[in-house]
Nucleic acid binder design. Structure first.
Lengths: 312, 312
DNA sequence: CTGAAAGCGCTTACAG
DNA sequence: CTGAAAGCGCTTACAG
């Protein structure tokens, strides 16, 4: 081919905005450069931030991202994973609601990390919960602390669901024990699997109506903290004067809420970035070594605001 | 083939979890059953909800969704659209930041709908802005109302960007005129293209520092409302006692903010659903008729809360 | 170093 | 009605 002809071909390609067909390339190469990302709910700030962090890193590495939001239903998660398998994604990042099944590609779990299933990025659930309890008990002297958290059990028979709920509940019990406090069963409450605010709202109202209501509440998720805030308001209780509140997750604009909510800073986008890097490592090595990688734990920082009683 | 053999093949397929290769099918059929969705920022509640609504409808119709978040940069949007073209998506849903270019597939715009470019789903920007101004002027008697909104101009040479900003600013001026109020130039402020809260925070502080500060502010986006709230708090002003606030978009948990923020209910997921239906219609007919479809406008409802002065 | 051929896994139009 | 062949648009190993 003459150089002149070559140049003319290039120019024509440029002019017609020719894009090589990625499908054909993928079919031939056996790699799609696509990563599937499965999250319980894209509209929840935490997962949106994780998604952003992961997408940033994966896009920079030449991958693109297929996102599916499963509405926290195990069967929808299963369907999503199978669809992603049909599309031959090269790997998966999964914040599982319990429906995951192996499709033979590298997977990195985030948030909810099933113990036997591979590498993942999780929060320091135990340490974080302890931070909240220790702060309420140690610095503010509370002795009647209730818990409203995600359920510890598996949803609809799912093997992996709600490890987050398990870890946080266990850590709450342990921290209460270490502080030498009593934990009557009615102080230990769990929400629906979706951690929906309306459910937490009712739980908070029922806690407020107890003969011996708690003087402080630990919420195990941001949506639950919002619901608790609403429920306490319904009951005519002031936060933190009548009852204190500390939340595991940081609600959006926590400092502008009434009152500003004491919570743990989670570094959301960092989680997505780390998950993406773990996955990229597994894709590069492809020798199964990544399967043995330990779960990375993201440390949490306590943000003291008014809801716990600080600064009043 | 004998019936017995057929059954055994089916059983084996089931057992091995055989998934037909979607790539090969797409290559042959000339259709990927994939829809590209381009949004400025998945972590913004509005776009996340639109995404959910669209995904719901598209998944039910057998399509899957490729999401790209462009961080509101026109060049990143352009790159995203080209990548989606390389993957041969069957159609696009685009909340443009100005970088869109035609790739020869049906497109539906949401939020920011460029006039000559096809069907879309937009908000009633003019009517919504008028609702806010009329409420502040008519029901609360404000005569010095300032505006903090998205910029009306195109970002970095993009032809389509910020129609939303244009429409809301024009509507603000018109509503102020109809109410017979003065509009000094220093009351008419616009943020950066990203509508970032920190920029609005500084604008609010500078409004508060004016010799004749406004008695009310209309925020043209939820992130701007949050920033204004912070800026007014920085300046030691109480909302709504010292200065009232009404926001075009509803911030997350608007009723739990301090104060609860008066704003317009936008029906976010409905927007995504409508956009998906428009796109499905265009894909089915495929005769270009959809190109002539008028832009659908979503009506908005005023939610009266404390920040405007209601209920005080 | 260049160019023609085979093949990725499907679907579809066509021959038997 | 069944079965073999061609082809979607690439990449890659191979022959010239």
């Amino acid at each position: 081919v003459s150089l002149v002809a070559r140049d003319r071909v290039w120019a024509a390609a440029e002019r017609l905005r020719f894009e090589p067909n990625h499908l054909a390339r993928s079919l031939r190469r056996g790699s799609t450069l696509a990563i599937g990302m499965v999250v319980p709910d894209v509209a929840v700030a935490f997962y949106a931030s994780v998604l952003k962090g992961a997408q940033e890193t994966l896009t920079a590495a030449g991958y693109h991202v297929l996102v599916v939001s499963t509405e926290r239903a195990a069967d929808r998660e299963r369907a999503a994973v199978r669809t992603l398998a049909a599309h031959r994604v090269d790997g998966l990042i999964v914040a599982t609601s319990g429906g995951y099944e192996d499709i033979g590609v590298p997977v990195v779990f985030v948030d909810n990390v099933p113990a036997p299933a591979g590498p993942g990025v999780a929060l320091c659930n135990a340490e974080g919960t302890a931070l909240l309890v220790d702060h309420l008990a140690g610095e503010h002297g509370h002795r009647a602390i209730a818990y409203v958290g995600p359920p510890p059990g598996a949803a609809d028979g799912a093997p992996f669901a709600h490890l987050v709920g398990r870890e946080r509940l266990d850590a709450f019990r342990a921290a209460i024990g270490r502080a030498g406090l009593a934990l009557p069963p009615e102080y230990e409450r769990t929400s629906d699997a979706a951690c929906s605010a309306p459910v937490a709202r009712e739980i908070a109202a029922s806690l407020a109506a107890l003969e011996q209501p708690p003087t402080a509440i630990v919420a195990g998720a941001d949506t639950l903290a919002i619901g608790v805030l609403q429920g306490l308001r319904d009951s005519g209780l002031r936060v933190p004067d009548d009852i204190a509140l500390a939340s595991f997750d940081e609600p959006a604009y926590a400092d502008l809420l009434d009152p500003p909510v004491t919570s743990l800073d989670r570094h959301d986008t960092e989680i997505g970035r780390r998950a993406a890097e773990l996955l990229l490592g597994a894709l590069r090595s492809n020798n199964g070594a990544a399967k043995l990688a330990p779960v990375q734990r993201i440390p949490l920082t306590l943000r003291r605001r008014r809801s716990c009683g600080c600064g009043t």
